[in-house]
Structures are given as C-alpha cells and as structure tokens.
Computed example of a mutant assay.
Amino acid sequence: MALVKFNNSRNLAPVYTPFNDLFDTFFGEGIIGDKALIKVPAVNIAETDDKYEIDLAVPGLKKEDIKISIEENVLSVSAESKEEIKEENKKVSRREFNYSSFKRTFTLPEAANANSIEAKYVDGVLKIEVAKKEDAKIQAREINIV
C-alpha cells in the first residue's frame, strides 16, 4: 500500500478565492511549520513463524528518551525529547527550544507471549520483537499418504 500526500494547491481548486489563502494560513503550513507539527513515527509490523516484529522509525532520539511498557496485552511505546539551545556571552535576540513527544499503542494478539519481548535501537530504528506462545507457533510436519 502506498501513501500519497495530498497537495491542496490553487491549481486543483475549481475556483480561486481569497478564502483559499486564509484557510491555507490557518490550516496549512503558514502558522504551523514543520518543526511545530506533532509527528507520529512510521511503523512496520511483520509476523514470522515464531514472533511478531515491530519497527518504528524514530531518528534523532536517544534510547534513553524512549519508554516501552506493557499493560493488559497493550504494548505502549512513547518518547519525550527536549533540547534547549543556549548561547553564552552573547546578546540573545532569539532562542529556540525543541520539544517533541509521541505515544503509540499496539494491542497484542492472543498468540503473543507478553513475557518475552525484546527491544533494540539501531540507526534511528526501534526494533521490538514479541515472541509467540509455543502453542501458537506454526508446527510443520509431513503427512504420510496411506
């Protein structure tokens, strides 16, 4: 499945009115720039014979900023990052703060073993592996024909 970003530009509108600019200012990128948007990390979920794999794209975070918890078969991944730029011995006319946070929750299937979860953070990708219960693993066997 491919995700396509919709671009609501003037050439797609049947009639151009001054209200287009007004709405673009309030609801587009005029007031809310890229840094101020709340961003939720992209996730890939895969299933193998013996585990579930959850990969979250969280570049720029430290592993100390990330918190993973599980409660009643719900896996929660959250992060909070706060960065303050300080310039000493200078007259500051502008100072920018960078704060970002997110929380994603995943309901684990009944086949998941909540007691066997491993996580690692490599190159901006958080990789979580949830093992399956023994009785849920696919058992391969050969069947004899009589």
Rank of each mutant, 00 (worst) to 15 (best):
A119W: 01
S116L: 12
L37P: 00
V43K: 15
I85P: 00
E110P: 03
D135Y: 13
K86V: 12
A136T: 04
K132V: 06
R10K: 15
N11S: 10
A57L: 10
F6E: 12
V74H: 05
K132E: 02
R104G: 03
Y16S: 12
K82R: 10
T25G: 11
E84A: 09
E84G: 00
V58T: 05
V58G: 00
V122P: 03
Q139G: 13
G33N: 11
I117C: 04
E129P: 04
G124N: 06
D123G: 02
L126I: 03
V146S: 14
K63N: 15
I45C: 06
P41F: 08
E72G: 02
I70K: 05
I32A: 00
L22C: 00
A42Q: 09
Y121A: 06
L56I: 03
I54M: 01
L108E: 05
V77S: 03
T48K: 08
K62V: 12
A36T: 05
V125A: 01
I38K: 13
V4C: 01
L126E: 02
K62Q: 15
A42Y: 06
K62I: 09
E72N: 12
L108W: 02
D49L: 13
N73S: 11
V4W: 00
V146N: 14
K63V: 11
F23Q: 08
T105M: 04
E96A: 08
K5Y: 01
I128W: 04
A46D: 10
A119Y: 01
F97M: 08
L56W: 01
E142N: 07
K133C: 06
V40Q: 12
K67Y: 00
I45G: 02
I38E: 13
I128T: 04
I143K: 09
K63L: 08
F97I: 15
P109Y: 04
N73K: 14
E129H: 03
V146E: 15
K132Y: 04
K82M: 06
K39D: 03
F26S: 00
I38D: 05
I117L: 01
K35I: 11
K35A: 13
F19L: 15
Q139V: 09
R94E: 10
F23P: 01
F27C: 02
K82C: 05
A140C: 03
L3C: 07
Q139T: 14
E118A: 13
S81K: 15
G124L: 10
L75Y: 06
S100N: 08
E29T: 07
V122I: 15
E83V: 15
I54T: 01
K63E: 15
Y52E: 01
